[in-house]
Design a protein around this nucleic acid. Structure first.
Lengths: 214, 214, 214, 214
DNA sequence: AATGAATGAGGGTTCATTCAT
DNA sequence: TATGAATGAACCCTCATTCAT
């Protein structure tokens, strides 16, 4: 059910976008978006710690004070960006998510979609990784972002435990062993230390599966 | 063999210390330590991003300019602190490391020692975690820190692959599946979201083992 | 005579209002008022120095740019507000002012009405006090505001000097000794340091009278 | 007694100054003083509300950040300046203050010295007047500044009430009627509206005396 | 070795005001 | 009339670092 809601939101967003293109292009696109994009690019180039409002402004080609028309402050900007990106990610991962799929298939599909998102959205991925551990991340934003991934908890891991397909351990551990290793390897991939190719992907999925399966 | 080198380094450090005592160098080793300690405490209290030279100076009860007697700049201070802490960690983990121990025992012992270090050195652990992803970490320091853990690569994982005890995959993957999950869970433990108790420890070790074993 | 002029001004204002109602001018007198009220409240809560156009706008529930429909700029807004408040004060003090009243009675009546105004219009009083010393107060507004109190100069103090009831000193001194002490004490009253009760009121009136009487 | 303490502090200050001249002129006078002076000048030229740290810095010919070497923040700077100026004032007023002087003489002497201070220290006077009503004035500073004037309360007004030379009213009222009128007239003097000459001075002293005397 | 003093550069944020709609 | 959007200028303050002593 939650999945459907997410998909609906996606539709609405698409409709909104069309609306914008037809009726609102008179101004200059959505300035909101250009601030988001500038921020993401900047974080990717220089790291979260080096991001400043004036740098964002320069990159987005607006005055620094203009940012404060759209966001309360730096924290607010980053939190809203975080939720925005997380939503994009959850939409892509849970697109066509089917509750009746066999568990191992569902597990593998989700993980592959997750990896696909990472590899095709380097900027988003690295931003999330940097921001998730930052003190700038508001608790509320974190909770809201976790909610986006509830299908995973309920329709995958909890269900898997009930069916004794997965080990009877803290669900957090199942999540961690499913997603953390690949995240870590993706970082090494983007650092140029290793290559996350098709073969590695299969290995990782196999290893995560071995870790969590009963 | 590498293990012995590490131990030797430790000896050298002790010799250095004696040297200091005998020759009464003015540059005070205590001051160096107190700057390190102040930095660690500060990072633990406020986060890496909030650390400034003047805050460190205040906490270490020295003048900010005094720090520049001991370190080239902020980056140098943090890198040296990082290596210092990493060395402490490797010393504790590889203490009594025996090359002839059966692999599964060696695996479990190392992981338990690692977890023990984390739980009894919260400050060091969180500092490493924060700094390892920071752009302030120099490549040289990173490489040097990796060298400290070579026994793991050679005497544990490579060996295990040769003996077909572990999966025939990129050694990095073995390392990641061995250490990353517990690191991630320890973070949740320190955040107060979960509790890393004896039972959880056993579960994690079991899961990591399942992930990497052939 | 001057008194009558003041009353006439009042009438004019009423006529203006009727005019508005009949002809339904778009420029809404209510909005003007709500901007005034918001400003007064804000100054009372946070002090004159903390007042900004955007804060006024938020409190008055209008857009900041709307303020510029009614006032030239911030200075103009504050000056007009100042005159508005001063007028309210003079109207209350000179209400029923009678030229033929014996001087000591007129003196005491005026002073009591003044104190009554202060105590029942804390916001107005504190605004006047803050603004009167501010560099934002235009000279023209100041002169205009002084004119409102001419009955005091002519029908009270000058007359009293002529009749040798008051000391033969600079009229400004008579005004100062009449009004400044009570103003200062009222401030302490509102600060919570003293209480301006009936007894204190009598004492102050007595002291002011002793100061100025011949 | 309190008076003596104040005088002693004065001596110490003088000694310190000599010391500075002989041994410390190597730098550039007391930078602290130059920041104070710049602030006072600025407030006198543009008003308290217009004072900014950067303007002070420019006028004092230092970098804005240098001010933060000497003061915690803007509030701290202004509060310390306030106490500094108030101390100078109390030193001048209570210089040679003699407890055994007849009350009316003591009253008149104090008031004349006060007026003299105002007229010869326009900058200090106007700063005090502006700052005393500012929300930037810390309660602690206010209390500390009031303590400097305790001789007035104890050796003049309270004593005068005991001897039934003054009216049996709130001591604050005696203080207000003694000092407020002349302060107000001095403001008009500096504004160019009136002239506070010898004759006016005598009139004011007479009027204040009439107000408070039993 | 140790430090107080000094600073330019930059941080985040608010300001009064303008302009197109 | 009313306003959302936009901005340059200014705000206070902290930063890492240097230098004279």
């Amino acid at each position: 059910m939650i999945v459907n809601i997410v998909v609906l939101q996606n539709h609405l967003t698409l409709i909104e976008r069309s609306f914008n293109i037809w009726h609102m292009r008179h101004k200059d696109e959505n300035k909101n978006e250009s601030i988001f994009n500038a921020t993401i690019e900047l974080i990717n180039e220089q790291g979260l710690a080096e991001v400043s409002m004036s740098k964002i402004a320069k990159k987005a080609k607006v005055s620094a004070s203009t940012i404060y028309v759209y966001f309360e402050n730096k924290e607010d900007l980053l939190n809203k960006l975080f939720l925005n990106v997380k939503k994009k990610m959850s939409l892509e991962i849970f697109n066509n998510f089917d509750d009746s799929t066999p568990l191992q298939i569902a597990f593998e599909t989700s993980l592959r979609k997750f990896i696909h998102f990472i590899l095709t959205n380097k900027d988003y991925f690295l931003f999330i990784e940097q921001f998730q551990n930052s003190p700038l991340l508001h608790k509320i934003s974190l909770e809201e972002s976790i909610e986006l991934f509830e299908p995973l908890y309920n329709s995958l891991f909890e269900k898997g435990k009930q069916q004794h397909v997965f080990k009877q351990v803290d669900t957090n551990l199942l999540v961690i062993f499913t997603f953390r290793p690949v995240i870590e390897f993706a970082k090494e991939h983007f650092n140029g230390n290793s290559e996350l190719n098709q073969e590695k992907m299969n290995e990782i999925i196999r290893m995560s599966w071995d870790a969590i399966k009963a």
